[in-house]
Amino acid sequence: MSLDKQTVARIARLARLKVPEEELQGLAGELSGIMDWIEQLNSVDTSSVEPMNSVADLSLPMRQDKVTEGGHPARVLANAPGGAVYLEPGNPDAGGFFVVPKVVE
């Protein structure tokens, strides 16, 4: 399976990853090498095999749909890049917002 430059550019876009134009060719070569090596799986007959989605041989536990830990707006916002905007300046416990570039005109 060989990946060309256009395919790499397409998956980079899907992954929201900026890849400089001059790196696309090199990446296409590396990724093709990895995919070629992976192709050997095609020689395994898996026609009657259930895919294994988890190694934990357990059914997922259920719990009450209740907030068990919450009410920490200051802690949630503490790492906001460039700082958060708080509803009440000087009082992070009152909550606030992450700031992003404008998405609605």
Partner: peptide, 13 residues
């Protein structure tokens, strides 16, 4: 790819 890998993974286990 992904489904195939999860099937081979079952065989390895």
């Amino acid at each position: 790819y992904y489904k195939k890998a999860q099937q081979v993974r079952a065989l390895i286990a």
